[in-house]
Computed example of a mutant assay.
Amino acid sequence: MLSVGALRAHLVATRLAGRVATSREGSLRNYRLFAARDPRQTLGLDPVGAWGTCELLRLMADRCGVSPDPAETSGEDTIDPDCTVAALDAFAERLGRAAHDRIPVLLGTGHPHRLLGFYASLAAALSAAGCAVLTPAYAPCVDMPTQFGVRKYKLHYIGGVAVARPAASGGPDPGAGSQAEQGVHTHSPLPVRAALAGAAEHGGMLPGLVVGDHGFICGAGQLGIEAIGLGDPGDPAVFVAEAEGRVSVAVPLDDTVRSDYYRPLTRYVLNRAWLSQ
């Protein structure tokens, strides 16, 4: 089993925490956009608090370990690895309870090229423990705004994990290990809304827990469904949702490093949750 010390060292060595690739300029820009309630940064969350840029910076310093100094406006951003380890422990504890209670779970990611393997491993372990891993509303079209205008996407499931794929994509599920058509990077809450609406409309089972990132957890939390997941220092909505009780656990880490760097986190979480295969 990976020790806490070894996990912490791995986080820093791979820049999952410590000095990360997220730029300070980008994070501060996103805080300003969130404060202005730009939907590209609210991720489906309708925050209760005022959350100006100063309040957001204090929150992100507390939850992630970014510098609280507003005068620090350039360079690489930081994540306190101790914050990451503590949040991973809470994340694993919640997964363990979900498995023990065999509650239905929905998993989804807006970072399929980086995080699909992480979530697919969780989906397999939860299914083996007797949880229903839900795949509602397979392949409905979703109109999502992009920098190129509104584009049509379809909700697909790869290894039990919901992703958005271009509507032109076709063919069978390529599988969690495939590099083809793994889905697109998105912050939108529309895919999780489509999944939940599809389940409700057809009398299907609704999740007791949503696991993911970006709009998947913020969108689910906004609808009153318990959610846990991952967040980057440039994703203030995830941590505001946690602070306001819409997301139960938000794990601060860089969500754009190599996909294999997340494997030790997978092992650590599954061991802590008593879900190791």
Rank of each mutant, 00 (worst) to 15 (best):
M1S: 08
S3D: 14
A6P: 06
H10W: 10
H10L: 07
H10N: 03
V12P: 02
A13F: 01
A21R: 09
R24Y: 13
R24G: 10
L28W: 15
N30H: 04
N30R: 05
R32A: 15
L33W: 13
L33P: 07
A35Y: 03
A36W: 06
D38S: 07
D38Y: 05
Q41E: 13
Q41C: 13
L45H: 01
P47G: 00
G49H: 06
A50V: 03
E55A: 09
M60A: 09
D62L: 10
V66T: 09
T73Y: 03
G75R: 09
E76D: 05
T78G: 06
D80S: 00
D82H: 09
A87M: 06
A90Q: 01
R94Y: 00
R97T: 09
R97D: 08
I103T: 12
V105W: 07
H111Q: 09
H111C: 10
P112T: 14
L115W: 05
L116Q: 11
G117Q: 03
Y119F: 12
A120L: 04
L122Q: 14
L122G: 10
A125H: 09
A128V: 08
C131L: 02
A132E: 13
V133I: 13
D143Q: 14
M144Q: 14
M144K: 14
Y153L: 11
Y157M: 15
Y157S: 12
Y157E: 14
V161N: 02
A162Q: 14
V163R: 14
A164P: 11
A164Q: 08
A168S: 11
P172Y: 10
P174C: 08
S178V: 04
E181F: 03
G183F: 02
S188H: 12
A195K: 12
L196K: 06
G198H: 05
E201V: 05
H202Y: 03
H202M: 07
H202K: 08
L206Q: 10
V211E: 04
H214F: 08
I217M: 06
G219E: 00
Q222G: 01
I225D: 09
A227K: 01
I228D: 02
L230A: 07
G231A: 04
V238C: 06
V240Y: 00
E242K: 01
S248V: 00
S248P: 00
V249N: 02
P252M: 10
V257F: 07
L265N: 10
R267N: 15
Y268G: 12
Y268F: 15
V269Y: 09
V269P: 09
N271S: 15
N271L: 13
A273M: 11
W274V: 00
L275A: 10
